[in-house]
Amino acid sequence: MHNGRSDANTPNRAVLKKHPGLRVSTVFLLGLLSLGFHAFAAPGAKAAGKQDAQPAASEFVGSETCATCHEEVTKGFATNPHTKMALMHGKQGVTCENCHGAGKAHVDGGGDTSKIFNPAKAPAKEVDAKCLSCHAGQHANFARSPHAKAGVSCVSCHSVHHTEDKAQLLKASQPALCFQCHGEVKPQFSMPFHHKVLEGVTNCSDCHDPHGSFNPSNLKTTSAQNAICTKCHSETAGPFVYEHPVVKTEGCISCHSPHGSQNPRLLNVANVNTLCLQCHSVTNTSAFPHAVAPTGPVHNQSAQYTPCTNCHSQIHGSNASEVFFK
């Protein structure tokens, strides 16, 4: 029911009538298809994925040989998730040399460090390429991520052999690891009102994907394409009959500072009325024709100083009240 108005005149149809979404997806799939044929269709083409020449089998010496000198590393390797590499290729997979490269030259050279790949000393891009040769499927956005562009390689945060957090092979646990570079965020988590990252309830990776994402600031989204905030604060996800539009169009950060704030409820300013009046003021109707200013006697700021949300309590959206009273 829509009160007699014709659907043909609704702004949604006016905006969406050319079905750009379908067009986008069709072009996207066709582009992918053509790129795939280009990559794979040529007969006698070089095998896909063969970026560098693979060493011959005789170049590998096996992990037992590595253990003769690097006992402190191999001793605890059984508990490392990378032991699964041994189970690949019909249980013929290697472990050490899968990452460090074939070891014969290194062994024959008496431990010549120039003959073996050392992630601790290699350039960031080489390290990333090595790790992503297996993990690219899980971290497909890393190459475009701010971390990659800043030269923060996989071994900046991860260590296969010397880890504090064995779950993700991190050099240090969150959030201490993240604070090593993002020191300007740490004070926000010590403000009176904050997401409990320092207490361990929330991790940086609950909201951000350090390996990159399609969203700004490496933010994640929920499974339902809503803001990541709604994964925990699910009562704000809606959809509602009466939306507070900015919640959906501008995002939660139009009112909240998610890391931490001096203000209750992580608000951007100290006073609720000041926050609301920032937008609900009709000061320039030509620039903001849709601005709505409060009407009615109770909005006299000195007759009744009640905070706006005492009446407009369902401020994230309501199914029963256009003014979010209930």
């Binding site: 095998a47 896909a48 994925g49 063969k50 693979q54 060493p55 011959a56 089998a57 590998f60 010496v61 096996g62 992990s63 037992e64 253990a67 191999t74 001793k75 605890g76 390797f77 059984a78 508990t79 032991t83 590499m85 041994a86 189970l87 290729h89 249980k91 013929q92 997979g93 290697v94 472990t95 040399e97």
Partner: peptide, 15 residues
């Protein structure tokens, strides 16, 4: 892709 046949993996010391 055919990968060069590697050596079998050794038994690891579990600690």
């Amino acid at each position: 892709q055919e990968q060069a046949k590697p050596q079998p993996a050794p038994a690891q010391d579990a600690g």
